[in-house]
Protein backbone atom coordinates (compact mmCIF):
# COMPACT_ATOMS: atom_id res chain seq x y z
CA UNK A 1 0.00 0.00 0.00
CA UNK A 2 1.21 3.55 -0.62
CA UNK A 3 1.61 5.90 2.29
CA UNK A 4 0.69 9.53 2.76
CA UNK A 5 2.94 12.20 4.17
CA UNK A 6 1.31 14.68 6.58
CA UNK A 7 1.52 17.40 3.92
CA UNK A 8 -0.78 15.27 1.73
CA UNK A 9 -3.36 14.89 4.49
CA UNK A 10 -6.78 16.04 3.44
CA UNK A 11 -10.29 15.34 4.48
CA UNK A 12 -11.58 11.97 3.29
CA UNK A 13 -8.21 10.23 3.00
CA UNK A 14 -8.24 6.70 4.48
CA UNK A 15 -5.17 5.79 6.50
CA UNK A 16 -4.04 3.21 9.04
CA UNK A 17 -3.63 4.60 12.55
CA UNK A 18 -2.71 2.39 15.50
CA UNK A 19 -3.53 -0.66 13.38
CA UNK A 20 -7.05 0.46 12.51
CA UNK A 21 -8.48 2.01 9.37
CA UNK A 22 -9.44 5.67 9.80
CA UNK A 23 -10.77 8.48 7.66
CA UNK A 24 -9.12 11.90 8.03
CA UNK A 25 -11.75 14.50 8.94
CA UNK A 26 -9.46 17.52 9.08
CA UNK A 27 -5.75 18.26 9.31
CA UNK A 28 -3.93 21.40 10.34
CA UNK A 29 -0.29 22.45 10.11
CA UNK A 30 0.93 23.67 13.50
CA UNK A 31 4.29 25.18 14.32
CA UNK A 32 5.19 26.74 17.63
CA UNK A 33 7.50 29.75 17.20
CA UNK A 34 10.88 28.12 17.53
CA UNK A 35 9.82 24.53 17.46
CA UNK A 36 9.20 21.41 15.52
CA UNK A 37 6.36 21.52 12.97
CA UNK A 38 3.39 19.26 13.66
CA UNK A 39 0.25 18.19 11.90
CA UNK A 40 -2.78 18.08 14.14
CA UNK A 41 -5.54 15.94 12.69
CA UNK A 42 -8.92 14.47 13.50
CA UNK A 43 -9.42 10.86 12.45
CA UNK A 44 -12.65 8.90 12.40
CA UNK A 45 -12.04 5.29 13.26
CA UNK A 46 -13.93 3.39 10.58
CA UNK A 47 -14.42 0.34 12.82
CA UNK A 48 -15.85 2.10 15.86
CA UNK A 49 -16.96 5.48 14.48
CA UNK A 50 -15.02 7.20 17.28
CA UNK A 51 -13.12 10.39 16.51
CA UNK A 52 -9.45 10.50 17.51
CA UNK A 53 -7.42 13.71 17.89
CA UNK A 54 -3.82 13.02 17.07
CA UNK A 55 -0.73 15.16 16.49
CA UNK A 56 2.03 13.87 14.24
CA UNK A 57 5.46 15.24 13.49
CA UNK A 58 5.19 17.05 10.15
CA UNK A 59 6.71 15.05 7.32
CA UNK A 60 5.83 11.69 8.84
CA UNK A 61 3.75 9.27 6.85
CA UNK A 62 0.85 6.95 7.50
CA UNK A 63 0.09 3.86 5.48
CA UNK A 64 -2.97 4.24 3.37
CA UNK A 65 -5.83 1.95 4.38
CA UNK A 66 -7.19 -0.45 1.80
CA UNK A 67 -10.71 0.85 2.24
CA UNK A 68 -13.31 1.06 -0.52
CA UNK A 69 -16.97 1.97 -0.48
CA UNK A 70 -19.10 -0.09 -2.82
CA UNK A 71 -22.72 -0.07 -3.83
CA UNK A 72 -23.84 -3.66 -3.12
CA UNK A 73 -27.12 -5.52 -3.27
CA UNK A 74 -28.44 -7.05 -0.06
CA UNK A 75 -29.32 -10.72 -0.67
CA UNK A 76 -30.47 -12.38 2.56
CA UNK A 77 -29.58 -13.17 6.15
CA UNK A 78 -29.13 -16.59 7.70
CA UNK A 79 -29.64 -15.08 11.13
CA UNK A 80 -25.96 -14.61 11.99
CA UNK A 81 -24.55 -13.23 8.74
CA UNK A 82 -25.95 -10.74 6.25
CA UNK A 83 -25.00 -11.42 2.64
CA UNK A 84 -24.29 -8.79 -0.01
CA UNK A 85 -23.40 -9.04 -3.70
CA UNK A 86 -21.23 -6.76 -5.81
CA UNK A 87 -23.15 -5.05 -8.59
CA UNK A 88 -20.28 -5.15 -11.08
CA UNK A 89 -19.87 -8.11 -13.39
CA UNK A 90 -17.99 -10.15 -10.76
CA UNK A 91 -21.14 -10.74 -8.66
CA UNK A 92 -18.76 -11.48 -5.78
CA UNK A 93 -20.47 -11.93 -2.44
CA UNK A 94 -19.42 -10.84 1.02
CA UNK A 95 -21.01 -11.48 4.38
CA UNK A 96 -21.16 -9.21 7.40
CA UNK A 97 -21.99 -10.07 11.00
CA UNK A 98 -24.54 -8.32 13.19
CA UNK A 99 -21.97 -5.96 14.72
CA UNK A 100 -20.91 -4.69 11.29
CA UNK A 101 -24.43 -4.37 9.92
CA UNK A 102 -25.50 -2.60 13.12
CA UNK A 103 -28.61 -0.44 12.90
CA UNK A 104 -28.79 -0.94 9.15
CA UNK A 105 -30.39 -4.32 9.71
CA UNK A 106 -33.63 -2.64 10.73
CA UNK A 107 -34.07 -1.43 7.19
CA UNK A 108 -32.59 -4.19 5.03
CA UNK A 109 -34.97 -5.62 2.45
CA UNK A 110 -33.83 -8.10 -0.13
CA UNK A 111 -32.54 -6.37 -3.27
CA UNK A 112 -31.91 -3.10 -1.42
CA UNK A 113 -28.84 -1.30 -2.70
CA UNK A 114 -26.58 -0.53 0.22
CA UNK A 115 -23.23 1.22 0.62
CA UNK A 116 -20.83 -1.34 2.03
CA UNK A 117 -17.40 -0.23 3.23
CA UNK A 118 -14.76 -2.90 2.75
CA UNK A 119 -11.42 -2.93 4.52
CA UNK A 120 -9.05 -5.43 2.93
CA UNK A 121 -12.10 -6.91 1.22
CA UNK A 122 -14.00 -7.45 4.48
CA UNK A 123 -17.11 -5.40 5.28
CA UNK A 124 -16.69 -2.94 8.16
CA UNK A 125 -19.86 -0.94 7.76
CA UNK A 126 -23.20 -1.04 5.96
CA UNK A 127 -25.27 2.02 5.16
CA UNK A 128 -28.80 1.36 3.89
CA UNK A 129 -30.35 3.50 1.15
CA UNK A 130 -31.62 6.85 2.46
CA UNK A 131 -35.20 5.84 1.66
CA UNK A 132 -36.71 2.35 1.83
CA UNK A 133 -40.21 1.10 1.04
CA UNK A 134 -41.49 -1.38 3.63
CA UNK A 135 -44.82 -3.14 4.09
CA UNK A 136 -46.87 -2.53 7.22
CA UNK A 137 -47.31 -5.89 8.99
CA UNK A 138 -49.10 -4.75 12.09
CA UNK A 139 -50.81 -1.57 13.27
CA UNK A 140 -54.07 -0.55 14.98
CA UNK A 141 -56.92 -0.33 12.46
CA UNK A 142 -57.88 3.18 11.42
CA UNK A 143 -60.78 4.42 13.58
CA UNK A 144 -63.49 5.80 11.33
CA UNK A 145 -63.71 9.56 11.39
CA UNK A 146 -60.39 9.99 13.15
CA UNK A 147 -58.74 12.36 10.70
CA UNK A 148 -57.01 14.69 13.16
CA UNK A 149 -53.97 16.10 11.38
CA UNK A 150 -50.66 15.11 12.91
CA UNK A 151 -52.08 12.09 14.70
CA UNK A 152 -49.72 9.09 14.75
CA UNK A 153 -49.63 5.47 15.89
CA UNK A 154 -46.99 2.74 16.05
CA UNK A 155 -46.69 0.34 13.11
CA UNK A 156 -44.50 -2.73 12.75
CA UNK A 157 -42.94 -3.11 9.31
CA UNK A 158 -41.83 -6.16 7.35
CA UNK A 159 -38.27 -6.00 8.71
CA UNK A 160 -39.59 -6.06 12.28
CA UNK A 161 -38.84 -2.41 13.01
CA UNK A 162 -41.57 -0.29 14.63
CA UNK A 163 -42.02 3.32 13.56
CA UNK A 164 -44.69 6.02 13.98
CA UNK A 165 -47.08 6.34 11.04
CA UNK A 166 -50.15 8.54 10.39
CA UNK A 167 -53.49 7.20 11.62
CA UNK A 168 -54.78 6.55 8.09
CA UNK A 169 -52.13 3.86 7.31
CA UNK A 170 -53.42 0.28 7.35
CA UNK A 171 -51.91 -3.21 7.43
CA UNK A 172 -50.72 -4.29 3.97
CA UNK A 173 -49.83 -0.81 2.77
CA UNK A 174 -46.25 0.01 1.74
CA UNK A 175 -44.71 3.08 3.34
CA UNK A 176 -41.56 5.06 2.52
CA UNK A 177 -39.19 5.62 5.45
CA UNK A 178 -36.14 7.85 5.81
CA UNK A 179 -33.51 5.49 7.24
CA UNK A 180 -31.36 8.36 8.57
CA UNK A 181 -34.09 9.55 10.92
CA UNK A 182 -36.30 6.44 11.12
CA UNK A 183 -39.29 8.60 10.22
CA UNK A 184 -42.27 7.93 7.97
CA UNK A 185 -42.12 9.97 4.75
CA UNK A 186 -45.14 8.99 2.68
CA UNK A 187 -47.18 6.14 1.26
CA UNK A 188 -45.01 4.36 -1.26
CA UNK A 189 -45.56 5.71 -4.74
CA UNK A 190 -44.90 2.38 -6.39
CA UNK A 191 -46.59 -0.35 -4.35
Amino acid sequence: MPSYSTNEFRSGLKVMLEGEPCAILEAEFVKPGKGQAFTRAKFRNLLTGRVWDRTLRSGESLQSADVVELEMEYLYTDGTEWHFMRMDDTYDQVSANAAVVGDAKRWLMEQNKCTVTLWEDKPISVVPPNFVDLEVKDTEPNIRGDTVAGGAKPATLSTGVTIRVPLFINVGEVVRVDTRTGEYVSRSKDP
Partner: peptide
Protein backbone atom coordinates in the same frame (compact mmCIF):
# COMPACT_ATOMS: atom_id res chain seq x y z
CA UNK B 1 -2.33 11.25 26.67
CA UNK B 2 -2.92 14.39 24.62
CA UNK B 3 -2.80 12.53 21.32
CA UNK B 4 0.88 12.98 20.50
CA UNK B 5 2.23 10.48 17.98
CA UNK B 6 5.61 11.99 17.14
CA UNK B 7 9.14 11.44 18.31
CA UNK B 8 10.17 11.59 21.94
CA UNK B 9 13.16 13.88 21.93
CA UNK B 10 12.98 16.21 24.93
CA UNK B 11 12.74 19.41 22.92
CA UNK B 12 10.16 17.95 20.57
CA UNK B 13 7.88 16.93 23.42
CA UNK B 14 8.18 20.41 24.94
CA UNK B 15 7.27 21.88 21.53
CA UNK B 16 4.17 19.71 21.37
CA UNK B 17 3.08 20.44 24.94
CA UNK B 18 3.66 24.14 24.40
CA UNK B 19 1.56 24.18 21.21
CA UNK B 20 -1.22 22.41 23.12
CA UNK B 21 -0.95 24.83 26.05
CA UNK B 22 -1.22 27.99 23.97
Amino acid sequence: EHGYQGGFGEQEILDFLYSEAI
